[in-house]
Design a protein around this nucleic acid. Structure first.
Lengths: 238, 238
DNA sequence: GAGTGGTCTAGACCACTAT
DNA sequence: TAGTGGTCTAGACCACTCT
């Protein structure tokens, strides 16, 4: 493990365990350098990770302090959301993910998809339409477009489990980031039917463009979430 | 301006202007060091900002590349949302923000507020309840709790314009970050009335804890948004 | 093997805060 | 004025990709 990760993890654990409590001052960078037998840049980097994560703040001229966080807020940050797919996310909690496939076809990308995925006119994409269940309960209905040449050999069986797993494990591709947008609307008849809710009930809509570590787009997806199983968290800075 | 910010801005502009296009390879770090007459760490830092922002990706052993971004996606990222208050955000677009004050009182923090703001039992907070309008149209209804000792001298007139402005300009405090959570629900009768929508229409609910640059909590707010004027965007990594 | 980006160092100097 | 964190350097060595 990298040195700055070790320092980061160590200090983070001390905050979680209460060795450093809310608003408490951390040792100075100079002292941390000695304690961890390392240089200033490395300590700074470790601390900056904690700043980004929202656990500490730094004040030039004064020192470094744990934020005025409640226990619950620390917990919330701790199990913070890095990018993980639907299947991975829910399976980690020991729940069972199943999918109903409503459509699986290859079509020419329409203008919206072309634009979002930055494709040439006439490009072909998989068009995937699924309802996704956790422990038998419908959670989201999802429409996804994926450029066929970037996901060769995609089959129906992959949709029934996890497309991301296929992309990662079998194709050996790495997903690097996703650009996400959350809005809110009334469920139409179709959405209500699939999600087991009433028409006009509120739903959350997330639009997502996913990128590989090569920088190429791999997916444009629009996901409709049942209101009772949706939450989105993030930390805004500066 | 700091050197790494200059490099960051320069490269960012080149991407926005199309000097570097989607999927194009950037010069190597070594060459950028020469071009900007600086050291590797500084160039790396500038590039890492662009990575965080979602504009480029780096591949060890290969090089650095512009992401496969559409023009619209570049625009979207460009006018990206740092932390800005309601008034500042909407006024920047030349629109007029007004507020209707439904409640302004000092009360003992209830358990929820105590917990979120990490306050001692019995602490007093301002309890503020406002409807906020942009160009006369109701956009959000907002309930905010602020510890009185951290916002001394808050008056009704500040609520009618911008509390953040008072905090920043008159108290000289600096807001550093906010922890946000987005959920979705049906509007109740009260919310519908204030927002000018129908009961049971969908609304977005954001819960926010705001921190000063001292690390202290300054605000716990719950905001109900009209669906037609709400969107939340973010980039998820790793 | 040559070349990329990633980590880390030891230290200089700067901007800011406290006293 | 002393001490904090912030920026920046010049260079070493490592992990990885490509050919």
């Amino acid at each position: 493990m990298k040195k700055y990760e070790e320092i980061y993890t160590d200090i983070k654990n001390k905050i979680i365990n209460g060795d450093y409590t809310a608003t408490e001052q951390l040792p100075f960078e100079k002292d941390l350098c000695e304690a961890y037998n390392t240089s200033k840049m490395t300590v700074k980097r470790a601390l900056d990770l904690l700043v980004d994560e929202g656990l500490i703040i730094k004040r030039r001229g004064s020192g470094t302090f744990v934020k005025d966080l409640s226990r619950k807020e620390i917990e919330r940050i701790t199990r913070s959301n890095h990018l993980s797919g639907f299947t991975a996310y829910h399976s980690n909690s020991g729940r069972k993910v199943t999918n109903k496939i409503l459509a699986f076809e290859v079509i020419q990308a329409d203008e919206l998809v072309q634009d979002k995925l930055n494709l040439k006119p006439g490009s072909f994409v998989y068009n995937i339409h699924r309802v996704r269940y956790v422990d038998g309960k419908p959670i989201v209905v999802e429409k996804t477009a994926m450029p066929i040449e970037r996901v060769p050999g995609l089959e129906r069986k992959h949709l029934e489990t996890s497309i991301y797993e296929y992309i990662k494990e079998e194709l050996g591709l790495k997903i690097q980031s996703a650009h996400r947008r959350v809005t809110v609307k009334k469920a139409d008849q179709d959405e209500a039917l699939h999600l087991g809710i009433e028409e006009n009930d509120p739903i959350a809509v997330t639009e997502q463009i996913t990128y590989l570590d090569t920088g190429d787009t791999i997916e444009f997806g629009v996901t409709k979430h049942r209101a009772d199983s949706f939450a989105s968290e993030n930390i805004v800075s500066s």
